[in-house]
């Protein structure tokens, strides 16, 4: 496995403080390696978007990072903790080192500015010495890279279709050649045909430019196809993390299994599927022990009392994966 580019250690993120506060992300440990696509799956309210905003320090109040470290390894130089950066260094870090494509990226473009202005704006802020012509040339090059004709430079966002706006957003995220790109449900608002085209293009760009991707979505079947490793979140914690194929073939956590069983298959025999009974937990009244135990078909004695830790399971491929479940007790916790 290649070198890590981003290491998340014991990250805790909450909303509000004191008694009113809720803990949206709890003790998350996760490592993103160079050039890999890491999928982050979970239902709404599982904390996957909060995790992404927390680690990039984009969280708006009342959200607060209450603990942990996010170690970033730049291409050259010493690794540093993103959470400890000064405002000025943070400004330089953002976009140049990690870029984010937001949920509903179609609406993240400014409707009153041309695409060219919005693309060059990034360059103007981060590379003030660049000349206007080379800025425009770079923007044009970027549009071409994501499959938009350069003559759309002077278009306004409303003149582009949803898929094209999404491509512009991806191009904008890549314009400073960041090491890490975080995509928060980038294709949820698009149709399947467009979704496949954009994701195919993204994978191709990743091979060419060599950045790493954290891909956040609720669509696990999409992740199995497009990502290298998958981490599954439930109730603010990572419950399982493994290579994509391992999750699909042999998920260990009952929640991962349930999630996989929630997507009807397009091929193969037609069988009765059940989904997962019950509904996702409320962050304010989290169940004791394993937060999944009230919905878990396999819950037994320790589940209600003790929180399982994320660790290597005792299976054959145990070195490459980790799971937090009492069914697979571990001697070697992760992180």
């Amino acid at each position: 496995m290649s070198a890590p580019v981003l290491e998340i250690k014991n990250l805790n993120v909450g909303y509000g403080l004191g008694d009113q506060g809720v803990r949206a992300v709890r003790d998350v440990n996760l490592t993103l390696h160079r050039g890999e696509v890491l999928g982050l799956a979970g239902e709404s309210g599982s904390g996957k978007s909060t995790l992404a905003y927390g680690l990039t320090r984009l969280l708006a109040p009342p959200g607060v990072v209450t603990g942990g470290q996010v170690i970033y390894h730049p291409a050259e130089g010493e690794p540093y903790d993103v959470l400890g950066l000064s405002d000025e260094r943070l400004r330089k870090f953002r976009w140049a080192e990690t870029a984010i494509v937001f949920q509903g990226a179609m609406n993240s473009l400014n409707p009153v500015h041309k695409i060219s202005v919005q693309l060059t704006d990034v360059l103007r802020a981060h590379e003030p010495k660049m000349s206007e012509t080379s800025r425009l040339a770079r923007a044009r090059e970027m549009l071409k890279l994501v499959g938009i004709a350069a003559d759309r430079m002077d278009a306004y966002p409303h003149q582009l279709s949803g898929g094209m706006r999404q491509r512009v957003m991806i191009g904008m995220a890549l314009i400073l050649q960041p090491q890490v790109v975080i995509m928060d449900e980038p294709t949820t608002a698009l149709d399947v045909v467009m979704q496949r085209q954009i994701l195919g293009q993204l994978i191709e760009l990743r091979e060419r430019l060599g950045f790493s991707v954290i891909f956040i979505t609720h669509d696990l079947s999409l992740l199995v196809e497009f990502s290298d490793r998958i981490a599954i979140m439930y109730g603010g914690r990572i419950v399982e993390e493994a290579p994509a194929a391992a999750i699909y073939r042999d998920a260990l956590h009952p929640y991962s299994k349930g999630l996989l069983g929630s997507f009807p298959a397009l091929r193969g025999p037609r069988r009765e599927l059940t989904g997962i009974p019950g509904s996702p937990p409320d962050l304010k009244g989290m169940p004791s022990g394993c937060s999944f135990h009230p919905r878990c078909p396999k819950a037994f004695d320790p589940c209600a009392g003790n929180i399982p830790v994320l660790g290597r399971p005792g299976t054959g491929d145990g070195r490459t994966r980790s799971v937090a479940c009492w069914l697979h007790p571990t001697e070697e916790p992760v992180g």
């Binding site: 499959g147 279709s161 898929g163 094209m164 149709d191 399947v192 045909v193 467009m194 979704q195 496949r196 085209q197 195919g200 994978i203 669509d219 696990l220 079947s221 999409l222 199995v224 196809e225 497009f226 994509a244 194929a245 699909y248 996989l260 298959a265 397009l266 091929r267 193969g268």
Partner: peptide
């Protein structure tokens, strides 16, 4: 085209040759 575009976990390698091609830009 619609069926080939749907996410399919069984297709672990993205095989562009086998998929139905879309001559348009997906719109």
């Amino acid at each position: 085209l619609l069926i080939d575009s749907a996410p399919d976990p069984d297709r672990l390698t993205v095989d562009a040759e086998q998929l139905t091609t879309d001559r348009g830009n997906g719109e």
